[in-house]
Amino acid sequence: MSRGLTAERVRKDVDVVARAGLDLETFLEEAMASLRRAVPWESACVATHDPGTHLLTSGRKYGALAGESEHDHEFALIEYGDVEATAFTELVRTETDAAGVHLVHGGEVERSPRMERFMVPRFGIGDEARVAFRDGREMWGAAALFRGPDDRPFDAEEIDFLASLTGMFARGVRAGVLTRMADVVAPAPGPGPAVIIVGPDDRATQMTPTAEQWLGELAGSPTHPDPVSPVAALIASARRYARGELPSPPRCRLRTAGGMWLVLQAGPLSTFRDREGDVVITIEEARPPEIVALVVAAFGLTPRERDVTQLVLQGVDTKEIASTLHLSAYTVQDHLKSVFDKAGVRSRRELISRVYFDQYVPRMGGELAPSGWFA
């Protein structure tokens, strides 16, 4: 079969599984297996990202790297601690759908700090190609494909093909996020702050019992099998923030094995006595405003549909929405119909329920803590 015909069949296969409403694990396994037929790889890593902050939220490995986790912490520190053309954050900033290290650096892959300091010495990688999962507004994840030192580098045609899949992968990951919203939410860990202190060597030196419990919850999640990488990404980003390279402290949203959404935030600590270079990471249950934006983004709405949805969630009626957005009532109804179709609901009430999902609804009317949040 010709290369072009294989590529076209793979593109159709990936599109089909992206639209099938599969859970995240199944979608990624099937899509990566199909992709390998058109763009052969020796090993591959797939990461998901918080679309609002672009920080790593999970990682999976396939092929020769499957099961390897010893160096995940080191990888995340390099990935988020350095700035280079093919880093995840740069793919977002430059709106790049796909890139090959060999092509970007004119055949000198060691010009990439990630390749020179990590991929080549640790795993003997010869070349790496990356494809971002972008839907035009947010980046939901990315895949990195690797070839050995004796394999041919990824060529321009293969990179262009990878770029053509960016929206399909984004759609599949978005659908994977939505499939878990009906999961039963497990009780949160015990009371008390969830805090992790990280020393100058980028390793945790102290943590509260509640933080340890939350990390255990994340470690048991099929969508976040290894919480080490997201934590290391936060550490590296916090150090960049301390150097003035980032405008705000890093944060990301993760979901536990029990279905609870969390917000992880990191920041540098001020020098105190003999302590210098420490980073603090906090973990807390996500409040509805933290999750609504992510859920709505996962529906794949147009900007105008998002505007309409935002007002619906505020309880605004059709007439007021039309007036606020300078639209006719008929146009608002058309937008609502499209929103309902994409969200898989039939009414405003179902839409609101779909967004403010089970994490919060079963606990309404329950005991409140002194903070004003659920105890």
Rank of each mutant, 00 (worst) to 15 (best):
T324V: 12
R251I: 10
R147C: 09
L246Q: 03
A242I: 09
V198S: 05
D13V: 07
L5M: 15
A144H: 08
V46F: 07
G106C: 04
P362D: 11
P222Q: 01
A211W: 01
L215M: 06
W261T: 01
L5A: 15
E110G: 09
I125W: 06
I197G: 03
T89F: 11
V279W: 00
S69M: 04
G100K: 00
D135N: 03
V14A: 07
F118M: 04
E90M: 12
A144M: 08
R147I: 07
V198D: 07
W140E: 02
A298K: 03
E108V: 09
V361T: 14
G59D: 06
R275S: 11
L218V: 05
S221V: 05
G216Q: 04
P303D: 08
V296W: 05
G4A: 15
V279Y: 00
T208R: 06
D50T: 04
G267R: 10
G366Q: 14
R304I: 06
R19A: 15
Q359H: 08
I197F: 05
L178Y: 01
R275W: 11
L264N: 05
A132P: 01
I196Y: 06
H326P: 05
R363C: 14
F133K: 01
A144E: 10
V198I: 15
E29N: 13
A238T: 10
D50V: 04
A375P: 11
P249H: 11
A7Q: 15
A233Q: 03
F154S: 01
A369S: 15
S270F: 03
V39L: 07
T53D: 06
A343S: 00
G136R: 03
H105C: 05
D23W: 04
G190D: 12
L218Y: 01
A182E: 13
P149K: 15
R134N: 07
V173Q: 01
G190I: 06
S69N: 12
E95Y: 05
G148Q: 13
Q213K: 13
R9N: 09
G244E: 07
I291T: 08
T89Y: 09
G344P: 10
V131M: 13
P225H: 09
I78H: 11
R346C: 05
